[in-house]
Simulated assay, not measured.
Amino acid sequence: MNKNEKRKEIKQKQSILSPEYCHFADKAICNRILSLHEFQTADVIFCYISMENEIDTRPIIENAWMMKKKVAVPKCTKKGCMELYQIHSYEDLEAGKYGIPEPKSKCLPVPPNTIDFAVIPCLSCDLEGWRLGHGGGYYDRYLEHTDFITAVVCRHQLLSESICHETHDKRMNIVVTEEIMRFL
């Protein structure tokens, strides 16, 4: 099955997940991320701003702020490319490309070499750390020349047995679902 066929399959599975399951899974996944030594010891975290159907990252971001960590979030700069900017509150966000909340222009850029830990979204992933995104390549391009620890978050019911991957795809260091946490 190619990536586009897999995306269709996962989106179909996603559409029938109950709100109760999603709420339970998201809470458990966030708690697992917050318990990670890699999160606890990080000074600068990179985390996506969740959209509808994605795992709700607000508890991760809010806990990072409470712990006085720097929070860097993505901003699309051109097709297929993104950069990270520090936010201090949700007031630092505005609607960006594709309706995704992005940092306002007043926010300061965060260089990749300063990031300690990242929470990465997916439509699905496998237990080997390969992720299936939406197909824009934003995360793969950004992560290509980085070496910070990455944790991909996925609801267990959307986990795949195997994700086909290409040479430009970057394998994640940690896979986190509500049921498992796997270090690679």
Rank of each mutant, 00 (worst) to 15 (best):
P19S: 06
V73I: 02
M67C: 09
A42P: 02
S35K: 13
S89N: 04
T41N: 10
D43L: 02
Y90F: 09
I61E: 04
F24D: 10
T57G: 02
K97M: 11
E20D: 07
M66Y: 07
V44M: 04
A42C: 03
E62S: 03
D26S: 14
E54L: 12
N31L: 12
S35F: 08
T77G: 02
P111L: 12
N53L: 08
Q86K: 07
Y90V: 04
P109N: 10
D92Q: 05
L17K: 04
Y21S: 11
L108F: 09
P74N: 02
I87C: 00
E52K: 14
R58D: 06
Y85F: 15
T77R: 01
Y48A: 01
E94S: 15
G80T: 05
S35V: 03
M82V: 07
Y98Q: 15
I100G: 06
R58S: 09
G99R: 08
I61K: 07
I45G: 00
F39K: 06
I100S: 13
I87A: 03
E54N: 08
M51E: 13
G99C: 07
D43W: 05
A28R: 14
F24E: 13
M66E: 14
P59Y: 12
L34I: 10
G96L: 09
Q40Y: 02
I61R: 03
H37W: 13
E62G: 02
E52W: 05
Y98D: 12
S18W: 06
Q86E: 14
Y21T: 07
C107S: 11
Y48T: 09
T77P: 01
Q40K: 13
I33Q: 03
I60K: 03
P103F: 10
P111T: 14
P103W: 14
M66Q: 15
A28Q: 13
N31T: 08
L93P: 07
P74A: 02
K75M: 06
F39Q: 09
V71E: 01
K27M: 10
H23V: 10
A25E: 13
P109C: 13
E91C: 06
C30K: 14
P111I: 14
D43G: 12
E62M: 07
E20N: 05
H37D: 13
I29R: 09
I29F: 13
A25Y: 09
T57C: 04
K104L: 09
Y98T: 03
H37A: 09
W65P: 11
C76T: 15
M66L: 11
Q86I: 02
Y85C: 00
D26R: 12
K75Y: 00
C76A: 15
P109A: 12
C76I: 14
I87N: 03
S35T: 03
E62K: 11
C81A: 04
T57W: 02
M51I: 15
I45Y: 04
H88I: 04
D26H: 10
E20T: 05
